[in-house]
């Protein structure tokens, strides 16, 4: 991959990678560090990308490894992971349905880590199923099915909570 192409990909994916990372680490400085590391690593290992084919999936795999390293490092050093308040992370303060959305977010946070990851890749990072499938090494059909089951489950759970 040449530098010009990387720049193009950078413009296309920087926000998605950053948002995904921020939603995982919940700290702006850490999210910026990890996003930087992700793109630096992508640039450094760009020849490997040509073998793998799918840039977004590859980029997200790097980001996920960096995030894993981030948590491992904190665990190794027995550091408490510091996270920011929701207002500093999430966008929705101007939304008219503010309270409902916060309640929905809380329901999402009760999902298993695996389910939350699927939600993040789909609705925070905004990836299609083909890309999610590559990242998670499943078939697109399986991802689509898992997501639609999860959304239905979430909806039922949320409506129950609202009642």
């Amino acid at each position: 991959m040449r530098k010009a192409e990387l720049n193009e990909f950078y413009d296309e994916w920087i926000q998605a990678i950053y948002r995904y990372t921020l939603s995982r680490v919940k700290h702006v400085d850490d999210a910026q560090d990890i996003t930087s590391q992700t793109f630096l690593s992508a640039w450094q290992n760009r020849e490997r990308y040509q073998e793998r084919g799918e840039f977004a999936a590859w980029l997200f795999s790097i980001a996920r490894n960096k995030i894993k390293d981030h948590f491992r490092q904190a665990q190794r050093k027995q550091n408490r992971i510091q996270t920011l308040g929701d207002d500093e992370i999430y966008k929705l303060s101007a939304e008219p349905q503010h309270e409902t959305l916060i309640a929905l977010r809380q329901v999402i946070s009760t999902l298993s880590e695996k389910d939350q990851e699927l939600i993040r890749l789909r609705y925070v990072a905004g990836l299609d199923f083909a890309t999610i499938a590559k990242i998670s090494r499943r078939s697109p059909a399986a991802c689509r099915k898992a997501c639609s089951r999860l959304v239905a489950k979430l909806k039922a759970h949320f409506e129950q909570e609202q009642e």
Binding site: Y18, R19, L40, Y90, L101, R105, I108, I119, Y123
Partner: peptide, 23 residues
């Protein structure tokens, strides 16, 4: 609704520009 509920803030422009120049 899900999308809105968990939508996080964008990366600040000074950060994205600095990283881009670094790359």
């Amino acid at each position: 609704k899900i999308s809105l509920a968990i939508q996080v803030k964008d990366a600040p422009e000074d950060f994205t520009q600095t990283l881009k120049s670094q790359l």
